[in-house]
Nucleic acid binder design. Structure first.
Lengths: 351, 351
DNA sequence: TTGAAAGCGCTAACAT
DNA sequence: ATGTTAGCGCTTTCAA
């Protein structure tokens, strides 16, 4: 019934050595003779010893935890995107023997906003922040000398590494596919346009069209939605379809949610997708596979982004590599059923 | 540049009291005069003091963490169900000032299976286990005298509380709705039939039919799939449709994934849903809203289940309430587009 | 290569 | 009501 865990002291006694020697063995440090190491190892096995995280932490000033900060709006049910990223960090962290402590903060930083408890308690060895966030939170982390990695967001600040989506590549692939399928009137709908990822998608849209010698028509663009939810896609698509002169034969949405909203509008207004209008999303969230028609979209490796961030962070924590860097993850166009080939100018591999 | 955090000692000095008095104030314990309390509070504010989790933990033998154990197969992309539950625990835990440490274990317990590190390190104050799990993991937790709450799983063991779905109620509502809509030939498809939740859904299906005086026909039932994924739903529906004599006009699936698979089969075989066959799922996962037709299903409050588990666990940890209990969460039928009214025997509210 | 000893920063008896 | 003191179980100098 007594369930006292064994301590390093007992191991030392059993092995006939000092506790500091046991500590050396436990932490796999050199300068321990093979025989002593074995004696200690055996004692550890027999007594079933495992060092307590708290004791270790107090003495070494480490926590074994990684903090993960997200703004509240990014961590709701409607936003599976960052949730996936978070789960990606969980998996990777485990491999490095860290646990992830999650917290959310308000999207706007107010006067008496609470600081994430894990920062106050010195309960994390490094921090990951995902998505657009108020600059002050970044400072809050850096002021505590904690390694920091951002995901899907960037700031120009010494020491802040980022894991980013190659948005330009994704849009390029989407536009390229559409033009090669014979589309010329290609619209774009977006929202939350100041978000770095959304902004670069929009910029890439305009640039790719230009490169292909296609005029960028303002009446095919709607980017003034404040958010990128399904409803916003509905409204934005409505605008584009109603305002535009020569109607678009294809619409690129800033993300899947908006693409789904766009499809809802199109269908509800009697347009056939993809017969009348092709739609391409971005992110490849789970729903993209379930909607009808199945959504052609740009796949973003969300879990992988979380995993990469953890790897970078651990490198910093363990001083293996402390270079400030941006990592761009590649993306791919996933062809499904929401896009139609008008006239194939080149052979298009359809899976 | 020096970033030494202030300690309780410095606060004591500044306030002109002993560190134990500061501790009393910090932990909001009684027996401190109002004036002293204020002096200390001021000193804490001025020095920006916040106790370190590690120091606190070592002295008080608490970690401030809750462990969450899931089998690997329950924590994959294909399984948004338990992920939602996990996220529910995250939210609720934060309210109680706990962090959640997540870990997965193999579905089958092997000889040298690794024990969750947070158990070995004494880094959690209590544990939540979600889904069907090998009994030995439950023992592993109990042997360490840690409070334990299960979600969507139960064992008859002193001290193990559970948060469960009212599966019988859900199926009852589904069958009831179908019969009142004029359906008599109602099939059931399932898999992983030993899972408590699946089993009770199947049992409730048979029982409800009987209660309504409808014969339980074996040729309308397929429950021998090993899993409850989309593909299994496809196969099970195929069996039921091909083997059965008088074809079913409605199929109840053990969960949404199988329902989606069933719809895929039906559509691919020329059946119209819901015109020829109505389909009802269980769980109400996100995809249910996106599939076409939108899935009528039994809504399970997943996040809430996670939250309830945390509440129960915290009660146990803090000795507020240590009763072993089962909590059943209610469920509701969500009417969407995958079910059809054949002949309304009663007024059916369709939202 | 090993051991002794001094903390790490707090909590929790126990005294007063 | 407040202070003294002894740990909690490790890591980490520093000596030997």
């Amino acid at each position: 019934m007594k369930n006292k865990k064994t301590t390093i002291k007992e191991v030392a006694k059993k092995a006939g050595v000092s506790i500091s020697t046991v500590s050396l063995v436990v932490n796999n440090l050199p300068y321990v003779s093979a025989e002593v190491r074995e004696k200690v190892t055996n004692a550890i096995k027999e007594l079933n010893f495992y060092p307590r995280r708290n004791a270790r932490g107090l003495a070494s000033k480490t926590s074994g935890n990684i903090g993960f900060i997200l703004t509240e709006n990014h961590f709701s049910q409607a936003e599976p995107f960052y949730t996936k990223i978070f789960l990606g960090t969980e998996f990777e962290a485990r491999k490095h023997r860290y646990y992830v402590l999650l917290t959310t903060v308000a999207p706007t930083r107010t006067e008496n906003e609470e600081i994430p408890r894990f920062l106050l308690e010195e309960n994390v060895d490094g921090v990951i922040i995902a998505g657009k966030i108020h600059q002050s939170w970044i400072e809050e982390v850096q002021n505590r000398n904690l390694p920091l990695v951002l995901i899907d967001f960037e700031v120009s600040r010494q020491g802040v590494s980022s894991v980013l989506i190659d948005n330009a590549e994704g849009i390029h692939k989407a536009v390229d596919y559409l033009t090669k399928s014979g589309h010329r009137e290609i619209g774009f709908i977006g929202g939350d346009i100041k978000h770095p990822s959304i902004k670069s998608r929009f910029t890439a849209y305009k640039q790719t069209l230009s490169e292909k010698g296609i005029e960028v028509r303002q009446d095919l663009i709607s980017i003034d939605q404040t958010d990128t939810a399904i409803e916003n896609g509905f409204v934005a698509a409505k605008k584009v379809m109603e305002i535009s002169g020569k109607k678009p034969t294809a619409i690129i949405a800033a993300n899947d949610a908006m693409a789904i909203g766009a499809i809802r509008f199109l269908k509800s207004s009697g347009y056939m997708v993809p017969k009348d209008v092709s739609v391409i999303g971005f992110d490849n969230v789970d729903a993209a596979e379930h909607v009808s028609p199945k959504l052609t979209t740009v796949h973003v490796p969300k879990e992988e982004m979380g995993a990469i961030a953890v790897k970078r962070l651990v490198e910093k924590i363990q001083k293996i590599d402390n270079v400030t860097m941006k990592t761009f993850v590649g993306v791919d166009l996933v062809l499904r059923d929401s896009t139609k080939v008008l006239s194939s100018k080149e052979v298009i591999p359809v899976k």
